[in-house]
Amino acid sequence: MFGVKGIRMLLKAEDPAEGVIIPPARTSVIALIARAEATRDQAAHVRPARPTRRLVLTTAAAALVATVGAGTVLTVDGQESSPITASTPGQVLVPVAYQITNQPPAAGDHLRALASRIGAAPYDTRSGRYTYVRAQYWGGAIQESEDGRYAVSYVEKLQTWIAADGSGHQRTEAGPALYPDMESAAYFAKVTLKVGERRDSPLSAEPDGLEPLPTNRRELAQFLHTTQDPASVTKAVNIVYSRYPVSQTFRAMILTTLAQVPGFRWRGSVTDRAGRPGVAITGTSTSTNDGDKQIVEDLLIFDPKTGALLAHESINNTQHPKLNYYKVFLDYDRTDTIN
């Protein structure tokens, strides 16, 4: 095992900031001080921090979770059916409701059955240089209050065009701010948040191109990190659908590979945030963050007709269910042009 010097040598070779020229600060010291003073009053009114924001839910927020029934879902593209009352200062995200909430069965048999009956997707017959994916996610980057008790994240609309060599284009557009709990919504309603913006970024080709999706089951299982916890597996599935053209054959292989992973539970029919019907599995992972045990449930929603991934969500179940992250896959295609 390596010592401190070994760690430095090991990591230095992979330092993302190595050789990067940092441009001078865009804001003067005087402007920073003015900004600090302008928000001083607000900071001064923050109550002393509690142990962990994620572990605490107010009575109001807990009541909210308790009253959210099946079918109550925040949808994408501004078509939300939020359970929040008009007096609530912001939109609070709630977890997707499951058909099977108590003692869900193991997912294996259901996933194998799904894999055996899926059909073609519209993009299966299309061709083109780029794989096009349109998605929307929340929780990619969390902004927290100074004391860490309140959090906000923006909905991000994402379009990606990726060629086999990894080159292409990525377009992101910041949408509205949403909150994981009512306290955060109330807190950030008083704070001036940065305005969302659209960004276009070219993607550079990777030296060896995209690593091809494995064609045999054993290698696909490795590719999907099936020996690791469900959080790692679901993340890998998310990434596959974010970058690759996933054919009907691969969709079935992914489902049957997931069927062999112990720990995934079948949640039956669900409605995703885009209002689409799907079938869902969940897997629970535990980790320790700064000494606190965290229980996180990852949810994958599949199209019951094509087997394609519709959504991936992560819910912190350490105490009351609270959304960490969601991503809905809205459109797949193959194209020769970047629009």
């Binding site: 994620r54 100074e146 860490g148 990525q170 993340k235 965290q294």
Partner: peptide
């Protein structure tokens, strides 16, 4: 604290 990006093990990074 400001980053607060380590709870989801890397999900703060671009895709």
């Amino acid at each position: 604290r400001v980053l607060a990006n380590n709870r989801r093990d890397g999900r703060a990074a671009p895709q």
